[in-house]
C-alpha cells in the first residue's frame, strides 16, 4: 500500500525531484498511517504482500489468459448467426473463507467476458453466464484453486 501510494504520487506528478520525492514519502506515510488506524491495514499485512507476490502474479497471468479465451468464446456467440446460446444464472458456493478472496473471485468472474457476478451473499455466488458451457466447472475453477493457495499463505 505504501509503495503503491508513493508510486502513484510520482507517476501523477510527472517529475522526479527531491521535493516531489520527499512530499510523496510524507503523504504516502500519512495515508498509510490513516489506513492502519481506520481501515484495518497493518505492517504485518504489508509484509505478506511480498510473500504472496509470486502467487498474485500467477493469478494475474491466469486471469489474463482466461479473459482472452473468454473474449474469443463470447465473440463467437455474438458473430455467429447460427450458433445458439443458452443463457443461464447459476448459484454456487466455493471453499473460500475470507471476504477479500471472495470479492476477488467475484471481480474476476465479472472481468471474464461471458460471465457476470449478479450477487455474492455470505459465500453464495449468483452468476449470469452467456451460455451454459461457460458455467461448467465454475465452482471449482483455476481462480478458486489459486485463491485457496493464497488463503493458505495468508490473505
Amino acid at each position: 500500500m505504501f509503495f503503491f501510494l508513493f508510486a502513484l504520487w510520482i507517476v501523477f506528478n510527472g517529475r522526479v525531484t527531491a521535493e516531489t520525492v520527499l512530499l510523496g514519502l510524507l503523504f504516502a506515510a500519512a495515508i498509510f498511517a490513516f489506513a492502519c488506524r481506520f481501515l484495518n491495514y497493518s505492517l504485518a499485512k504489508e509484509k505478506k504482500i511480498f510473500v504472496l507476490a509470486p502467487l498474485l502474479l500467477r493469478y494475474l497471468g491466469v486471469l489474463l489468459v482466461e479473459i482472452i479465451k473468454a473474449t474469443f468464446t463470447a465473440c463467437r456467440f455474438i458473430l455467429s448467426p447460427t450458433l445458439p446460446h443458452d443463457p443461464l444464472i447459476c448459484r454456487f458456493r466455493t471453499p473460500l473463507k475470507s471476504d477479500t478472496a471472495r470479492a476477488v473471485l467475484a471481480n474476476s468472474i465479472t472481468l471474464t467476458p461471458g460471465t457476470i457476478t449478479v450477487s455474492l451473499d455470505d459465500g453464495l455466488y449468483t452468476v449470469h453466464c452467456l451460455d451454459k458451457s461457460l458455467a461448467e466447472g465454475i465452482e471449482d475453477s483455476r481462480f478458486v484453486r489459486l485463491l485457496q493457495q493464497i488463503e493458505e499463505v495468508g490473505l
Binding site: 443458452d86 443463457p87 443461464l88 444464472i89 447459476c90 448459484r91 454456487f92 458456493r93 453464495l124 451454459k132
Partner: peptide
C-alpha cells in the same frame, strides 16, 4: 422467463 436458473450448491 428470460433466463434459466440453476443451483450448483452442495
Amino acid at each position: 422467463r428470460e433466463v434459466r436458473i440453476k443451483n450448483l450448491t452442495a
